[in-house]
């Protein structure tokens, strides 16, 4: 009988492993303010940000202007960021545009979005693989991708592909209710 219980528990684990966890990590200086110049960030610096939680959860969205679903979900993220501005949630936006004018592509897009009030970084081409591995070892690099960390810098949610306001809100609330 014990074996059967064990088997059942194992089965449940196999079937419900949708939310993946990552190693513990954390944030840099305040990043809930207005958009500054878009800076590049490598995996090591990003790891430092993820781990420096200071009592805040973190939503991290990876996007590019060439990615249609990324562009489509962006207004929902801006709306969410506004709603959670004074709550314990930090927003971080990672842009993966490429080419010589990558930063201006991102800047132009953000200007059209009225420069959302969260920090936007560009991931340099050479940091691609390390960043993908850092954010989730199961991730293949498809975007958009959104990761939500709790206040202990533990990755609680990994959303791959186009999402909408309701999904973002539900996941954030779920993570924040757990820890805040």
């Amino acid at each position: 009988m014990k074996f059967l219980f064990f088997l059942h528990a194992l089965l449940i684990l196999l079937l419900f492993n949708g939310c993946r966890e990552n190693e513990t990590k954390t944030i840099p200086s305040g990043s809930q303010n207005k958009l500054r110049t878009i800076k590049s960030i490598n995996a090591e610096e990003l790891n430092e940000i993820i781990n420096n939680r200071k009592g805040k959860a973190l939503l991290l969205n990876v996007w590019a202007t060439w990615c249609k679903p990324c562009v489509e979900e962006f207004p929902d993220l801006i709306k969410i960021a506004g709603e959670y501005k004074n709550k314990n949630l930090e927003f971080l936006s990672l842009n993966v545009d490429f080419g010589k004018n990558a930063d201006s592509l991102a800047a132009d897009f953000l200007a059209k979005q009225n420069n959302p009030g969260f920090m936007v970084y560009i991931i340099p081409e050479k940091s691609t693989e390390q960043v993908i591995e850092l954010l989730n070892k199961e991730w293949d690099g498809s975007i958009p991708a959104t990761f939500i960390y709790d206040t202990d810098a533990e990755q609680k949610s990994f959303l791959l592909g186009l999402q909408d306001y309701d999904v973002f809100k539900k996941c954030i609330d779920s993570v924040m209710n757990l820890k805040i």
Partner: peptide
């Protein structure tokens, strides 16, 4: 290896 790309 891994890289960023467009979701299928």
């Amino acid at each position: 290896t891994k890289a960023f790309g467009c979701t299928i």
